[in-house]
Design a protein around this nucleic acid. Sequence first.
DNA 1: CTCGCATAGTCAATTAATTGAATAGGTGTG
DNA 2: CACACCTATTCAATTAATTGACTATGCGAG
Lengths: 187, 187
Amino acid sequence: MSLKYAVLAALLEGEASGYELSKGFDVSLANFWPATPQQLYRELERLAQDGLVRARTVQQERRPNKRMFTLTEAGRAELGAFAAEPPKRPMAVRDELLIKIQAMDGGDPEATRALIEERMGWSRGKLDRYRRVQSRLLDGRTEDEYLRETDRVGPYLTLMAGISFEQENVRWCERVLTVLRRRVALG
Amino acid sequence: MSLKYAVLAALLEGEASGYELSKGFDVSLANFWPATPQQLYRELERLAQDGLVRARTVQQERRPNKRMFTLTEAGRAELGAFAAEPPKRPMAVRDELLIKIQAMDGGDPEATRALIEERMGWSRGKLDRYRRVQSRLLDGRTEDEYLRETDRVGPYLTLMAGISFEQENVRWCERVLTVLRRRVALG
DNA sequence: CTCGCATAGTCAATTAATTGAATAGGTGTG
DNA sequence: CACACCTATTCAATTAATTGACTATGCGAG
């Protein structure tokens, strides 16, 4: 249900094709509302039929044509209404790793350690990418300066959420590794 | 795909009915692998057919009969194998609120503030429940003492993940509220 | 020159998830 | 004493998501 609004929100940044969304989604909305390319194409089609989005086909040479999508006024209005009302479903996390951790006892601690290291590396990478987006936005200014000057705080606030989430993730991994080391030592 | 293992992991705690899982899931595995009752019943049925779980019907008076499920050795083995190999899918977060925050600019800041307050209250409540589970587990001991004495660290480590996740959530909400207050003041 | 990847999608099949209702006695509230 | 909610599931219908393949061209590496 909310993919609809995620797509509309993504188009606040400007015109985009389904392909571009399915790529660039990765640095923003995909972090809290993941979607496959197929989902995006289907959703854009529906939005266009409902008049929330306008499509135009861009003829291209030496590459397939693409369809570019823009928010319509109706789309902007629907998104605004959505943004003001309370969420229908609470936030949900799905994390296979935590199932594995829950079930780790009795298994090989070395295998568990490897899983945690992998997650930690992944989170650090994500954090780096977030930080790069952040300094591109700040562009030399402090956070306070930026927030005073910009007209759109929304994207920055969600970026902050991503950053603190991954920071906490890394910290948790470190604590787990400490526990695992002690376990192995005391065997 | 992983619901299967989430259910098996839940049964590590001991025999349980579908109904109990659909309730008690809430204080542990449901936090990182949510499932509706219907999903659980279906999954338990499949697991029983695959021999990973054994079912027995418990006759009850003044209440509907229930089917209690236990892990079989085969189930335990499959779960152990699962726990040792790397996750197929990365962790995913789905959060409607963040879509609303992303799209908040131009809307009513007061409405946004209300949404954040709501989330903060919810996270604080979750945190309280986690902390109650934690002190029940610790039972007067320090964390270090507990981790040295217990044979199962897994559930405690996932509990730690939940606690630090919600703590960070509350902190993020506070930062957002600060930003919103400044916006309104300078607006 | 071939292999594979990037662009920019579409289509179809299967699997999974969501929603709502049905059953049926028991327990608690005003 | 009526109404709603708890226990404990099952069933069916619809909607959504996942997976893999298919089209077609261009570009760069080896």
